[in-house]
Design a protein around this nucleic acid. Structure first.
Lengths: 186, 186
DNA sequence: ATATGATTAGCACCAGGTAATAATATCAAT
DNA sequence: ATTGATATTATTACCTGGTGCTAATCATAT
């Protein structure tokens, strides 16, 4: 790596750290063939914290993240619920939900919102999906807010038929019928 | 916190760190009202690495992970594919996929694996799910490996009918029929 | 009373820094 | 060529959150 001007190097440093955030100052110094102190000065003037701080942030982000992304019992945010009757949830479509190429939400996220809401609306300790029929009416794009409504249509013994409707600004984008099975543990 | 026996404390320590992995030895020592040295000995005999190591692991995991969990075009690992014919993927069920209470995989993960495979098997630039009928044959538990097979049954214009079968050790756990729509961008 | 296991303490050392201060290099303008 | 400004490098003291080792203390069972 040849020597560049200060401004050049700093912008390269910023870029480099974005793709490669776990480098020590020493490694960076070697990479840019400058002294460790120069790297430190650069980090300071760019407002980039030290390696350990970066690790800590990423790790903590993950911990609050994984929980809400995949470990959540419910995908989306529950806004209203009447057990054994109906429930509403909201999911905002962000970049992690969409196909990079098109900005269209991947189908399974809409499914997940609907599925988890269908399960939440049923009043029992353990509820499993038995089967589902879903239809995607139109693609949902990044930035849109999906409002999902689940309605218990029929209850027969442990089996529930739940209809789910997902809308964006009043327009139906997805609907599904879920057969869910309740297993009260008593 | 009152003093417990060594074995008791160590099992509590392990538990505590699982839910609360970013504590320093000093904080742990305070929490368990023992000396820092005792915490260190406990960590060693439990094979638990130091805080920085824990942070590093979590942070690195995230960097290889979030991409593959929610941003991945494909849920699961693609093992074989013949475009427009059939494809196979494998998904190992970990704790982030299951309901904590029961250890049973949430339905939408099986759906996501099947859905993304049904889309991957179709040879076109942009492919969207139009509708799906899925059936969950039996619950899938933590630790199980789901092998998913997608087969293109019928192709009519831009519309494909794809059947998907997910098995655990040869036993069918999930099946679905997906109608997917290809939109070649040419 | 003493052997045993568990706990605590003390010390040297390490990585990857911060903070401050000083010395040197580089380069443009006079 | 000299000066002045800016950039870079070097040096030193200090910090956190540890490792690794040795030694001392404490409780208690035999």
């Amino acid at each position: 790596m040849s020597r560049e001007s200060k401004i050049e190097r700093q912008s390269l440093l910023k870029q480099y750290l974005e793709e490669n955030p776990f480098s020590t100052d020493e490694e960076l110094a070697e990479y840019f063939t400058v002294s460790v102190q120069t790297i430190r000065l650069d980090r300071i003037s760019l407002g980039i914290p030290e390696l350990r701080e970066r690790l800590r942030c990423v790790a903590e982000e993950k911990y609050s993240n994984l929980k809400s992304l995949t470990e959540a019992e419910l995908v989306g945010e529950l806004v209203d619920i009447t057990l054994d009757k109906e429930a509403y949830s909201i999911l905002d479509i962000h970049k992690e939900h969409v196909l990079e190429k098109t900005g269209i939400a991947r189908g399974h996220h809409l499914f997940a919102q609907a599925n988890s809401l269908a399960i939440a609306v049923v009043d029992a300790d353990v509820v499993l999906t038995g089967s589902a029929r879903v239809r995607y009416k139109r693609p949902v794009h990044i930035g849109e807010r999906v409002v999902c409504k689940a309605v218990v249509k029929v209850k027969r013994g442990n089996t529930y038929l739940v209809s789910v409707y997902s809308k964006v600004e009043g327009e139906l984008v997805f609907k599904g019928q879920y057969i869910v099975l309740a297993q009260s543990e008593k």
